[in-house]
C-alpha cells in the first residue's frame, strides 16, 4: 500500500498543464520540421515555416502555442496499490486545472452545452482513469482543441469490412475534415471495444509520440497504410495543398463483439501538446 495525498496530484496537474499549454511535444516539433523540409515552395511551406516560428516564440515568451488551450484531458493510470488521501481525486485534478489556466493566462474554453455560458475556469477536465498493477500513478495531460475535435468521427463497421473498412474510415474522416481541423493533423484511431470504449482508445492513441507504431504488426500496417493514403489527399498544411496532410496515425485496439467492428477517428491538429509524469 502506498499513500498519496491528492495535493500532490493537484500540483502535478498544475505543472503539466502550464507546460503543455506553451510547448509542442518533441515528436511534434520533429514532425513539423520534417514536413517543412518535404514540402515544395508555396503557401503550405510558408505556413509550416510560420508554425515552426510560432512554437519557438511560444516557448521563448511562455505564451500558449495556440490560443485554443483546449478542454483539459487528463488520463490517470493508477496503480492498484495506491490509496489516495485528501480531497477526492477529480476535485484535485480540477483544482490543478483551474489554477494553471488562471496563472498561465490560458483561454477558458469550457461552457454549458445548451446555454453556452462559460464556466470561466476551464473546468471540469475530461478525466479518464485506468487501474493498473503496481504503486505508481502515471499522469498524462493533453489540452484538446476543438477545431480538430469537431472533425472526429465514430463508425460502427460490419466485421466483414475488415482492415480495408478500417483504413477507408480513417482516410474518409480526414478527407471530409479538409482544411478545417488545422492540418497537418495527427490521427488517433480506436479499433474495437464498445461504442464508448472505442472513442477512448482513439483519444489514448493521441498520447503516443508521433512516429511510434503499435506493437502489433497488423495494426502498425494499418497505421502506415492510412498515413500513406492520407498524404495522397493533397490537403496539405492549412488546406493549402501539399504532400503533408497528416504527421502521423496511431491506432490502439481492444477486443470487440462478434457482431461488430467499432472504429473511432479522433483528429488532433498540428499543435500536439501532451505532458506525462509518473508519480
Amino acid at each position: 500500500m502506498r499513500v498519496i495525498n491528492t495535493d500532490i496530484v493537484e500540483q502535478a496537474v498544475y505543472r503539466a498543464a502550464l507546460k503543455a499549454g506553451v510547448n509542442l511535444t518533441d515528436s511534434c516539433r520533429r514532425a513539423l520540421k520534417s514536413a517543412y523540409e518535404k514540402e515544395g515552395e508555396g503557401a503550405a511551406k510558408f505556413a509550416l515555416g510560420e508554425l515552426i516560428e510560432n512554437s519557438r516564440i511560444a516557448a521563448e515568451k511562455t505564451m500558449p502555442v495556440c490560443q485554443d488551450t483546449g478542454i483539459a484531458v487528463v488520463l490517470l493510470e493508477i496503480g492498484n496499490e495506491i490509496f489516495f488521501e485528501g480531497t477526492p481525486l477529480p476535485e484535485a485534478v480540477n483544482a490543478g486545472v483551474r489554477k494553471a489556466y488562471a496563472d498561465g493566462y490560458f483561454r477558458k474554453s469550457v461552457c454549458d452545452p445548451i446555454t453556452r455560458v462559460n464556466t470561466a475556469d476551464n473546468t471540469p477536465a475530461a478525466i479518464h482513469t485506468e487501474i493498473v498493477r503496481g504503486d505508481k500513478l502515471k499522469l498524462t495531460f493533453m489540452p484538446k482543441g476543438f477545431g480538430s475535435e469537431n472533425m472526429s468521427a465514430l463508425y460502427m463497421l460490419k466485421p466483414a469490412q475488415g482492415v480495408k473498412g478500417i483504413t477507408d474510415a480513417i482516410v474518409e474522416t480526414v478527407k471530409k475534415a479538409g482544411s478545417r481541423p488545422c492540418p497537418p493533423v495527427y490521427v488517433g484511431v480506436g479499433i474495437g471495444g464498445t461504442f464508448d470504449g472505442c472513442a477512448y482508445l482513439a483519444k489514448r492513441a493521441l498520447t503516443r509520440d508521433i512516429g511510434t507504431h503499435n506493437e502489433r504488426e497488423d495494426i502498425a500496417e494499418i497505421e502506415r497504410e492510412a498515413l500513406r493514403r492520407i498524404n495522397e489527399l493533397d490537403i496539405g498544411c492549412q488546406g493549402f495543398h501539399g504532400k503533408v496532410t497528416a504527421l502521423g496515425v496511431s491506432c490502439e485496439w481492444a477486443p470487440t463483439h462478434i457482431a461488430g467492428l467499432p472504429v473511432a477517428v479522433n483528429i488532433q491538429c498540428h499543435c500536439v501538446r501532451c505532458v506525462k509524469e509518473v508519480l
Binding site: 505556413a47 510560420e50 508554425l51 516560428e53 516564440i57 502555442v65 495556440c66 490560443q67 477558458k108 477545431g147
Partner: peptide, 27 residues
C-alpha cells in the same frame, strides 16, 4: 486565411487590444 495554430505568433503581431462589445462573453 491566417495560419491556424500560430497563436503565439499572432499574439506578437497585436500591438493593442481592447474589448469593445459583449464583454460578458469573455474570450
Amino acid at each position: 486565411a491566417a495560419i491556424g495554430g500560430a497563436g503565439a505568433l499572432y499574439g506578437n503581431c497585436i500591438k493593442s487590444s481592447s474589448c469593445i462589445a459583449f464583454e460578458d462573453l469573455l474570450s
